[in-house]
Computed example of a mutant assay.
Amino acid sequence: MPVAERRYVALLPAAGSGSRMASSTPKQYLDLAGAPVIRHTIAAFVNHPVINQVVVVISQEDEWFTSHDWQFAAGKLTVLRCGGSSRAESVRNGLFHLADTLMDADWVLVHDAARPCLAQSELSRLLTNLAEDAVGGILAVPVADTLKRADAGQRIAGTVSRDAMWQAQTPQMFRYGILSQALAGELDADITDEASAVERLGLQPKLVPGSVRNLKITYPADLALADMIIRSQSAQ
């Protein structure tokens, strides 16, 4: 299939509750620079000319999404209420609902709903590096800090070499056929991201250099840092 005919779909699993944020509101709906976190995330893909569609997978009980205005994404945004109990299940459910619209060679970019600081340059770098790749890959950054392995008492049990170690980010970009195959069957707990599922097929996803600014909001302090990054990007 010619490159121009391939579809590029961003899939955002957004059914999680974000328990570590200590908030009754899921973290993807917390305010960030005057808008919900997930709005910034969606906008990063809607604004990129290569992305054909942005699919958000939410839970059936989600009461927050429809309370916001999504007109800015009209024409590209699709919302599916088929979120599962895990990230992997939500992604698999989303892929199932897209089965009639995607070919095996089409690209799916899975991205954390609570990772709102993705720059257009980083997204373009991923798309360019993987456009003709046989497997696909992920944005990631080399580990800079010393790594410690803890024991049951939270004491240092050893120092882990950081040589050749990378911290995985998203988007994680794979062809629809490969990703669907990787997430078929039983979803074990060790499938923590799409790359780990693809690795179980015996494939080696490519590491594409990302940025530390592409942070995932996990703890309350992350919101303040994300706010500074978003405002800095807007000022450029």
Rank of each mutant, 00 (worst) to 15 (best):
residue 68 H to A: 01
residue 123 L to H: 12
residue 145 D to T: 06
residue 149 R to T: 03
residue 154 Q to W: 12
residue 113 A to D: 10
residue 194 E to A: 14
residue 7 R to F: 12
residue 209 P to K: 00
residue 31 D to N: 15
residue 102 L to R: 01
residue 224 A to W: 07
residue 236 Q to G: 12
residue 145 D to N: 13
residue 14 A to V: 04
residue 210 G to T: 04
residue 103 M to Y: 06
residue 145 D to F: 03
residue 144 A to P: 12
residue 32 L to Y: 13
residue 226 A to V: 06
residue 1 M to Y: 15
residue 208 V to E: 15
residue 57 V to F: 00
residue 170 T to P: 10
residue 11 L to I: 08
residue 67 S to R: 15
residue 136 G to Y: 11
residue 158 G to Y: 08
residue 1 M to W: 14
residue 142 P to R: 01
residue 195 A to L: 13
residue 202 G to Y: 14
residue 157 A to N: 14
residue 154 Q to I: 05
residue 43 A to Q: 14
residue 50 V to E: 15
residue 101 T to C: 09
residue 155 R to C: 10
residue 75 G to Q: 02
residue 227 D to A: 13
residue 97 H to Y: 13
residue 132 E to L: 02
residue 90 S to N: 07
residue 25 T to D: 05
residue 198 V to P: 00
residue 37 V to P: 07
residue 226 A to I: 05
residue 171 P to L: 00
residue 91 V to C: 11
residue 120 Q to I: 04
residue 184 A to G: 12
residue 156 I to P: 09
residue 57 V to D: 02
residue 132 E to Y: 00
residue 78 T to F: 13
residue 125 R to H: 05
residue 96 F to R: 09
residue 85 S to V: 09
residue 90 S to K: 04
residue 181 Q to G: 08
residue 216 K to F: 10
residue 140 A to D: 15
residue 22 A to T: 11
residue 184 A to S: 13
residue 108 V to K: 01
residue 110 V to G: 06
residue 10 A to E: 06
